[in-house]
Design a protein around this nucleic acid. Sequence first.
RNA 1: GUCCCUAUCGUCUAGAGGCCUAGGACAAUACCCUUUCACGGUAUGAACCGGGGUUCGAAUCCCCGUGGGGACGCCA
Length: 463
Amino acid sequence: MTVRTRFAPSPTGYLHIGGARTALFAWAYARRHAGQFILRIEDTDVARSTPETVQAILDGMRWLGLEYDEGPFYQMQRMPRYKEVIERMLAAGTAYHCYTAPEELDALREAQMARKEKPRYDGRWRPEPNKTLPAPPAGVSPVVRFRNPLDGAVAWDDAVKGRIEIANAELDDFIIARADGTPTYNFCVVVDDRDMGITHVIRGDDHVNNTPRQINLLEALGAPVPVYAHLSMILGDDGQKLSKRRNSVAVTDYEERGYLPEAVLNYLARLGWSHGDDEVFTMEQFVRWFDLEHITSSAAQFNTEKLDWLNAQYIKSAAVARLSGEAARRLAKRGINPEAGVPLDKAVPLYQERVSNLNELADALEPFCVAVRPSAEMLAAHLTDPARAALKDLRGRLSACAWEKAAISAALKETLAACAMKMPQVAIPLRVALLGQPQSPAIDAVVEVLGRVEALARIDRCL
RNA sequence: GUCCCUAUCGUCUAGAGGCCUAGGACAAUACCCUUUCACGGUAUGAACCGGGGUUCGAAUCCCCGUGGGGACGCCA
């Protein structure tokens, strides 16, 4: 049997980080077992699903590089199929019409809550051998309810949570088609999972409570029951439930915040799953190692600091051309022409090991692309008279020396000797003059990358 | 309220009854490196929620409690 997994988001505006992890695990499981990964868009909530929200999901998947073998399938396009199954269930007696009005149901629920009972449909329209049903009220279009077993229990061996058993008495005859004939969530999922031959349902654990209903439905349909793996949720950095207001929840936010997709993927893989002490690994390794047994069953708190660290690791090993491209894009977005100054490829290596995200890289590269204007405070603090004298001396030497790091470094040391100064006394003012900042990578490397013409011009501007 | 899930350093986690004096990573602290800031290196501190069992032996199995989360829609 070949493994078939699916990711079935409802497009609510973006692919959020929890959904991304679910997708990643489902994808990895399929890849691990040489199976298929299917994308299904659950867009039956027409109020919230728009072409844009669907596109946002697709964009998120693409940024992460999670490729699907089939789909995207859209539930809205499967309506005829759902109706067909509902008709068949009605005919088979595994579903029935219910004429209870929404207001009546509300009243029922309230009464049950008041009695401290679990709110459930009371089965008033459920046909039974010796029961006389009320006459259908005129002008009311009925909903269709699933005829759930009355007793016994539903149980399954959840691949992450272990055996879960729920008494049928806890369940009720849930609605599978609304009064307007449109099918509901639990029903669509079941029909889709069955039609698409899903063997492993990997999803968030907010669906554990839906599982017994879905299993009962599957059984009523005579369909095989897949393996279920319920992933616990991801909490925000603050230990609270992820919220749009307080956290970055959309994966595309991470792109914007300067993260590399492989860092996000690696981080997500490690959040709720582990392979011994391994922390940094490629997607190839992940796919090779991934299993359902090592998924954590409790909720995990998102930790931005660790993501930052991972991102820094990936930046260190990324190709210079790629980093230059990313930095250029970000600079251009700020209205800076990345072509204006030093070629970014030259400057990137100076910062590759020092930054933890692409925006920091762009920040660092910015002074190489624009005319630097150190602030008055900066000048007052660092460009003292002795410092200026030293820079002037250095300027002379730099205009004559060979343009390579060793020669630049030698020129610097000669200035130190000539002016009887220590390295920081010259290097810091020089940094301010060249980049407008008192900190930078090794100063000789910075001078070299800037090029003779630019370096001298920047020094001159401060003398 | 009812049902379901869950509980190891601040955080992510390793841990399948003896390998645990509880390991790794991020973060923290200290030191080293150093031309500033980083990077890097070394070291240190830091946890089995509580109570009962089971067992020769429990972080690991069972029960109860407590904390946290989820579900109870003609939403998905």
